[in-house]
Nucleic acid binder design. Structure first.
Length: 230
DNA sequence: CACCAGGGTGGTT
DNA sequence: AACCACCATGGT
């Protein structure tokens, strides 16, 4: 049976259960969290969120008015604190200037995505996370885990991000499904699956025990995972 | 101790 | 277009 993203989604959901993402009280908090969690585990990002809340800085004007150094100290636990402090200020300025969350909500998904990508520190993944979890738009979030998963079940192929996005969206296009999918892919990346029978598509880590079920081969001088079909 | 964690940017080949 | 160094903390 050919690999099927919906089938994978159902397996992941059955194994890990609903993830209830995004852990935030409001859309702006999602945006801030999306920046703080860049190349950082959620625990440390959450320390930054909590510190911002303690100082009542988790709002646009708060982030705009606070001193750069004070902001850096506040989010230090999240790592990359100098970079992220600047990014949060950029983000807060943008949201404030756009009429707040309600103002942003008026834009179409492509228009909003374009504006987010124009900001320093917001790349494709962060923009899509914001669109999906802060604005509930049906967007496919593509991260390294999903790319790795795709490679594992398909072997080496030329699928780029746009093609991967289209392939996923063809089978999962509801906001609730895409919300759950990304959360499950991330949750799965942290778990070396030992319980699920050979599913061939539940595990992402190269160290996963289940990886033994896939054939590791070499193509074009690179180690890749052969297709698992059959 | 090394390695990882829910990326993005700017510069170089 | 593909690589690279860099940003930097806290947990295992």
């Amino acid at each position: 049976m050919r690999f099927n993203i919906r089938n994978l989604f159902e397996r992941l959901l059955r194994h890990h259960g609903p993830q209830s993402w995004w852990p935030a009280d409001d859309p702006f908090e999602v945006m801030v969290g999306a920046v703080l969690v860049q190349r950082t585990n959620w625990h440390n990002a959450a320390l930054g969120i909590a510190a911002l809340k303690d100082r009542n800085l988790l709002r646009t004007t708060g982030l705009i008015e606070v001193g750069e150094t004070a902001l850096q100290a506040c989010i230090k636990a999240a790592g990359f604190y100098r970079t992220k402090a600047a990014r949060l200020k950029t983000l807060a300025q943008f949201v404030e200037g756009a009429g707040g969350i309600e103002g942003l909500r008026q834009h179409s998904t492509p228009a909003l995505r374009q504006q987010l990508l124009a900001l320093n520190g917001i790349g494709p993944e962060t923009a899509d996370v914001i669109l999906l979890y802060a604005f509930a738009r049906p967007v496919v979030v593509i991260d390294d885990y999903l790319r790795r998963l795709w490679r594992r079940v398909h072997g080496l192929d030329r699928t780029n991000d746009d093609e991967l996005r289209a392939a996923v969206f063809a089978q999962l296009c509801k906001t609730d499904e895409l919300n759950e999918l990304h959360a499950l892919v991330v949750a799965n990346s942290k778990t070396v699956c030992r319980k699920v029978p050979v599913c061939g598509c539940c595990c992402l880590r190269e160290t996963c025990q289940m990886a033994a079920q896939a054939r590791c081969i070499t193509r074009h001088g690179r180690k890749v995972w052969a297709s698992l079909e059959n």
